[in-house]
Design a protein around this nucleic acid. Structure first.
Lengths: 346, 346
DNA sequence: TTGAAAGCGCTACCAA
DNA sequence: TTGGTAGCGCTTTCAA
């Protein structure tokens, strides 16, 4: 599976002799400083249980610096029996500025807490195969294994993960669930549109694959709120937008709820280019409350989403890692706050 | 530094006895299958140098499945002497859809090639401290250590990194350099504006910290092309945009080059709200060629950037890992293609 | 205050 | 075809 250069076996070099080109180990440091490996470890880790004399400390530090010694994380965690790795999924598809900002923040906050963030792409593995691949790294925490079943979670748990946190519409057994139910988004938008007298609502669904994870629940939310929905598939380009705009007119739709602000902007422009008045002829709503919505004319009405901050989530991870039993199976809690932002377009 | 639960030392449990709650090892599998650990390794890795009988294979596989055995990546790479880890920097600050799409693509492509992508945030460490922290993971490749000097690169190299690739304006010794010189962006924009008779150009610089890495070179490019530049600091909000718009009028600026399309849109809207005609009174140019530029009226003139695709970059990494000496110090090559996209706003 | 040595989980050599 | 075993680099107990 992995090709390994036979550098070691080629010549069974005399033990305890440092090869020039090789990466220095703590043994090399020990030799140079004239102490034992144990002492090196004590000094470099500031082990408080042991007192090492100043001269020895200095010698060790100097030797380490001279050799450019860098400890080997894998060896350390093998010995320790656990890692500081937090696994974070790479979304299969670019998912918008909102989410990528959130991820960024999260990574930053986790790094601050001295965790190593590993982004793991699924790359076509099924839920359980993915779980096994992830478990090989022995992560101390795993975030948002979307679409992973209870079995996968169990594998992760058995492999030593002390915190498994899902972000998704429904709780998964064995994981700490942060519910992000995007149906709320659709409901809020629909409620607003309904209150303005629109009973039939066109719902813009991205043609781009992968976004359905969010788009479908948003559509469902609109339906649940009691509106009649007309799905409109829209690719993120101008040509397609012109076609959908025509479709909106043909169908006599008086209101449209777009997947998010970007798709709303795209469609709104196409409608305006076709001479449609907004909100007079067609009311348009977006979602995500991006800056661009404020810059459009008319100003875009939208739905704001508040995810937990990366900071908060990082702290949750840290807490679960430290006290794993505490909330083994806590009440799943809604983590997605949703607010109407009524401006001019609807 | 890391608190380690003393689960092992608490009771020096009899060796070779599998503890129920613990993570199963290959020894557990061997015991259950009634074979040696070596055999387990052979079977599970499909080692071609050794032939194992079918019945034995089956027994091993069954035992592994029953125990839910998952190999330990750290132990494996400790033994192997190298990892499949590729270190990728987390940008300190959200950096726009263009770059995050690129990163995403890259991660996906690397995962496909069986690399483990680790995102490492700098978290306030200086270049060389960061290099040491990164080297602890013994990555086989490191991408884009921005602002890291030759020393840092050397540490990484000595720790076993076979590919060190920088993306930045200038080559760094010891690394494979992909030059991304954003001055080109400014030059192309300035050339266009100059050809339209604008000699004095307002240059919008984001107030947001971290973006200066790109903003400053873009400004320099404008200057190098022979224009007189007037820096305009702009925060990404409407209030500030209104102020800057007023400033543009006061200064009698006839042309503005914004850091990117988003800032251009922001300023353009503010100018229009103030009754300024575009491009009649003020010509506006953006950069990055985002979709939103096409949707503005007038349509936004901009500069398109083409980074190498994630796929290409992943292949480069793979090639360097396989043949490290080949291009130890190759000719640094320009990796950022820059094209003028002239539309209506300038 | 320091050193010797065991052992974390795994793979690959060598011997049977 | 299979097993024994050394050893990757590190930390930590125990003994000196």
């Amino acid at each position: 599976m992995v090709q390994i250069p036979k550098q070691h076996s080629a010549q069974p070099a005399a033990p305890h002799k440092s090869v020039p080109g090789a990466v220095p180990t703590s043994a090399d440091v020990a030799r140079l400083a004239g102490v034992s490996r144990a002492t090196v470890s004590y000094v470099l880790n500031n082990t408080s249980a042991v007192r090492i004399s100043e001269p020895t400390r200095r010698r060790v530090h100097e030797a380490a610096k001279e050799l450019g010694y860098v400890p080997h994380a894998a060896a350390r965690s093998l010995r320790a029996g656990h890692t500081r790795i937090v696994l974070v999924p790479t979304p299969d598809v670019p998912i918008g500025p909102l989410y990528s900002t959130f991820l960024n923040e999260l990574q930053w906050a986790l790094s601050r807490l001295d965790y190593t963030v590993v982004q793991y792409g699924r790359v076509g593995l099924s839920g359980d195969a993915a779980a096994r691949a992830w478990a090989e790294l022995r992560p101390v925490a795993v975030l948002g294994p979307v679409g992973m079943g209870a079995d996968g979670i169990a594998v992760l748990r058995r492999s030593g993960a002390r915190a498994v946190i899902t972000l998704g519409p429904e709780p998964v057994e064995g994981a700490h669930a942060l519910l992000t139910d995007h149906r709320h988004v659709g409901r809020v938008a629909a409620a607003h549109l309904l209150s303005r007298g629109h009973r039939r609502i066109g719902v813009v669904m991205p043609k781009e694959p992968g976004l359905d994870t969010f788009a479908v629940p948003r559509l469902e939310g609109v339906r649940e709120e009691g509106a009649e929905t007309v799905p409109l598939r829209l690719a993120y380009d101008e040509q397609d937008a012109a076609q959908v705009a025509a479709q909106v007119s043909e169908l006599g739709l008086g209101a449209v709820f777009a997947y998010n602000d970007e798709y709303a902007m795209l469609l709104m422009r196409a409608l305006q280019d076709a001479g449609v008045d907004i909100p007079g002829d067609v009311a348009v709503m977006g979602a995500d409350d991006l800056m661009l919505g404020r810059l459009l004319r008319p100003r875009l009405s939208t739905v704001r989403l508040d995810l937990p901050s990366g900071q908060e989530l990082a702290e949750l991870v840290d807490r679960l890692v430290r006290e794993p039993d505490q909330d083994a199976e806590p009440e799943p809690r809604e983590a997605l706050a949703v607010t109407l932002v009524a401006r001019e377009s609807a």
